[in-house]
Amino acid sequence: MPKTILVVDDSTSFRQVVGMALQGAGYEVVEACDGRDALSKLDGRKFHLIVSDVNMPNMDGISFAKAAKELPAYKFTPIVMLTTVSGDDMKAQGKAAGVRAWVVKPFQPPVLLDAVAKLVLP
């Protein structure tokens, strides 16, 4: 049974790139176009990990991470931020929101896959 990963990014092309990398490694991917859309998809179904952008319309990645961590079913779902943002202050905000890893775009698939493999739920 493949593991399922929620990919949150407002860029369609970027979701395709991330999806290509994850599906190539055998993961199933569910896409969301921003934090609000992603939150609506946390409806009880199992996600083994979440990969999210930071800067998005409607709800940014940090707010989404905080909101996801308040949902009992997703409290322990690892969140990896995948973003162009590389400032330490934003990383600190991410850490405070419960984010487990911070990957700076553009990413090389092996690097993302390595981070995912280390954090993905069994």
Partner: peptide, 26 residues
């Protein structure tokens, strides 16, 4: 600004070096 390239362009330093694929674990 959200990218290091913007910071470098703002400061007028050429040849931006992005932080491709750097990973920080918390």
């Amino acid at each position: 600004y959200t990218t290091s390239e913007q910071e470098q362009a703002h400061a007028g330093t050429a040849n931006s070096v992005n932080e491709s694929s750097s990973v920080t674990f918390f």
